[in-house]
Structures are given as C-alpha cells and as structure tokens.
Design a protein around this nucleic acid. Structure first.
Lengths: 126, 126
DNA sequence: CAGGATCCCCCAAGATACTG
DNA sequence: CAGTATCTTGGGGGATCCTG
C-alpha cells in the first residue's frame, strides 16, 4: 500500500532521513515513557556521549518530534519529551524493533555465512 | 511492546543499522515487485549512481536480504531480488512509509517554523 | 547537571573514468 | 549493461576539556 514512489519522491525519503541517524530512533524510543532528563537518557541508552545526545535532541527538536522543557526553579534541571507528532513515530519504530526480534538472528546468521570472504556489513562486529 | 531495550542491546540496533543507510530501505522498496535489473533499479530510484547502487546491493546481499542472479545465457543480464528474509522487512518499511504520508507535512512545517534561527536538519533543503 | 567548544577520524556517497 | 577503480568531501560521531 502507501505509494510506489519512495523513488525520486523527495518527500517520501523524509522519514528515512529521520531514521537514518544512528541515534535518532534510539533516543525517540528512550523517550517513550515520558519526560526524561539527559542524564537519565544517557544511562538508559548507554554508549552515547553527552555531546552527541544533545545534538540528537536538537535535531529531533528541529523536526518537531521532541520538546525541551527547562525546569523553572531548579537550574540544571531539564527535561525532554516527545511531542504529539513524535509519539506517532513510535508505531513505525516499534514495527522495526519487532522485526529485529523476530528476524535478527537470521540476519546475523547470513552475515556469518558470508563472513569468510566478507565485504562490509553495516555492523561487522557486535 | 516488543522490548524496552533498544538501549545498550546491541542486537536491537541491528535493524536500525540496516535502515541507517541512505539507500538500503529505498533499494529494498524498489525491489518489492520482483526481480529487477540494475538499470531498471536506477531508473526507478533516481539519483543513485551505479557505484552506490552496487555497494548497496552488496551490503543487502551480505545481510541476507537480497539475492543476486546472473542470467545464464545473456552476459550482461543480472537481476536482483528480495530473499524471503528481505521480504519480511517490507512490512516495517511500509510502516515508516505510511507514517511519512500521514505526518510528513507536519515535520516539514516544524522545520520551517524553526528555520529562521535554525540549526541543522537531517535534510535542510528538499 | 546541562551543554557548548575543539580536534580528529572515518566512511558513506558523489563524480569521473575505465574494463568486460 | 554490469561492475570496478580512484579521488574527494561532508558531516556524523567519538573523546576531551571547560563553563554556567
């Protein structure tokens, strides 16, 4: 369904660009349970630097998917949360996530099968 | 649903890595209607160089999502097609695609709204 | 704690040209 | 037409240090 035109249709690639970052989807996902502070996010996610996290959040903000809230009283207390728009993206993200839990093994198997003469994977070592 | 752990769970990020390329999803999509030759693919997709297309196909092949078939008689006749595994990814991809057709405008609106003082988007001009 | 400023690396992706 | 070989580049992403 949807449309046959991912192809050359610039608009259609928008979403892929949104998910074409290492961290965008992960951060969105990490925000799914409500407003969260950066520290919290970093703990949940693991392996993301503070700098990159900030960059990612800014990017998501720019695309209207995430909302920044500086706590009035406390100085160093900030929270980020999904916007209504951002929440709608959880569906598709979940679809992708579900796929991995079902077929991830097959992909890894295929990788190893082709590994001896192997070229480049999108994530060689894991 | 699925799992809360995208986070630090390496395996969970596999799928995102698969979709974290500019062309992976697009090419998979372009293959949805059956075996296709490279030329055909390039025409359908538009804006992809032969080199990058080949790279992408190799990558998808390596992950077991795509299948290469050299035509026996004709020399320069090759076809690529989705494997069974690759076909299962069409679902999630479609979910993402559907999302864009529903909410793409809102994203673009958000971008323009923030455009005057705007930082970087994942696709500034389109 | 939030997050800016720097420096550096790497590689996906573009352009171009060439072979079978 | 299919595919490879080079060369180049933009920018994502890591590490580190420093501030309000």
């Amino acid at each position: 369904m949807t449309t046959d035109a991912f192809l050359a249709d610039c608009r259609a690639r928008l979403a892929f660009d949104l998910l074409s970052n290492t961290w965008n989807a992960v951060v969105l996902w990490a925000l799914r349970d409500g407003p969260t502070r950066p520290v919290e996010l970093r703990e949940r996610i693991g392996g993301i630097s503070s700098k990159v996290l900030t960059e990612t959040l800014r990017r998501l903000q720019f695309n209207g998917l995430v909302d920044r809230q500086a706590h009035p009283d406390a100085p160093s207390r900030v929270e980020y949360r999904l916007t209504a728009l951002g929440r709608t993206l959880l569906g598709p993200i979940d679809a992708v996530g579900a796929w991995v839990f079902e077929y991830g093994d097959e992909v890894m198997a295929a990788q190893e099968a082709a590994c001896t003469p192997g070229p480049q994977s999108s994530r060689p070592t894991c």
